[in-house]
């Protein structure tokens, strides 16, 4: 059987995939005490040959529980997905939403709470057989933490028909995919530099659309082993934003570019901007 059946450590199991083959979506329905509920959803009810479509892992966290961003911070693990697709189908990487900062016992983590969609784009091959029904399946592993942590695993599947043109949106998930787009960090054309200042990095950003000084900003690195994860100091200096952040004690060498997220959180959730900033040449020397 291509789609395996796992029992997660949460004490529930996904049913064997064949039992759900006729269903459009398979949701893991945990009991009320389980910290997270995970669903595989699709933006459209059909697939079109050669056209990318958005899928996503919809995470419903119980209050006080969270899962992790690609850089989880001081502890934790990013959520992982492993797709099981028909030949010729291609899944991109998770388009990580702007994360929130969590503080647990003086340590810092980056991730998600409440309801969060981790979107993934899947493209059928140009010669996908119109009229056929395909299984889009994945195995996902996550670590969900409050103060304590529980790893979980589920296999999820969606069956969708392949049509020639114009896949129909699935009205059940329109709001989730719209919100997910808002939660994506916006690409920017900001310029800047990262300077290694011994035990910290000094980052300067300039360019169009920098957020105003008043905004409650945070700055995170998508790469691990760069920042020390403590809240940085961020100030406006004329047209520039200047960020000072502690260096990770596990830092060894700098990559060519910093994958930086500037984030702000409001009642509407986390919003972010993404900038790729080169390290100054002398920042590639070992820290110590």
């Amino acid at each position: 059987m291509r789609i395996q059946n796992y029992r997660s450590l949460l004490g529930y199991s996904t049913a064997a995939a064949f039992a759900f083959a006729a269903m459009p979506a398979l949701a893991v329905k945990p009991g009320p005490s389980d910290p997270i509920d995970v669903q595989l959803i699709a933006e459209h009810t059909e697939l079109v040959p050669g056209q990318a479509q958005q899928f996503g892992l919809l995470l419903h966290h119980q209050p006080h529980w969270h899962t992790y961003w690609i850089n989880p911070g001081d502890s934790g693990l990013p959520t992982k997905v492993e797709w099981i697709l028909p030949p010729g189908y291609k899944a991109d990487e998770i388009e990580w939403p702007t994360p929130k900062r969590f503080v647990v016992g003086g340590l810092y983590n980056f991730g998600y709470d409440g309801e969060t969609l981790l979107p993934v784009s899947i493209t059928p091959p140009p010669d996908a057989a119109v009229g056929s029904t395909v299984h889009i399946a994945l195995v996902t592993k996550w670590l969900v933490c409050r103060e304590e942590c529980i790893p979980g695993k589920a296999s999820l599947v969606i069956d969708l028909p392949v049509v020639r043109v114009a896949a129909k949106p699935d009205p059940r998930w329109t709001a989730q995919f719209s919100e997910a787009r808002l939660e994506q960090p916006q690409a920017t054309a900001w310029k800047g530099s990262v300077r290694d200042a011994g035990d910290r990095f000094a980052i300067t950003l300039t360019g169009p659309g920098l957020p105003p000084a008043a905004a409650q900003l945070d700055a995170l690195a998508a790469q691990r082993k760069l920042f020390d994860n403590k809240p940085p100091t961020i100030r406006r200096d004329g047209d520039a934003i200047v960020i000072e952040t502690g260096k990770s004690e596990y830092f060894t060498t700098a990559p060519s570019e910093l994958d930086l997220l500037l984030t702000t959180s409001s009642a509407n959730g986390a919003r972010g901007w993404r900038a790729r900033i080169p390290f100054a040449a002398d920042a590639t020397a070992p820290a110590r």
Partner: peptide, 14 residues
């Protein structure tokens, strides 16, 4: 000589 540790947060007191 260094690697980023992975795991649960150490449960320090406040």
């Amino acid at each position: 000589p260094t690697s980023e540790p992975y795991g649960c947060s150490v449960k320090y007191g406040s």
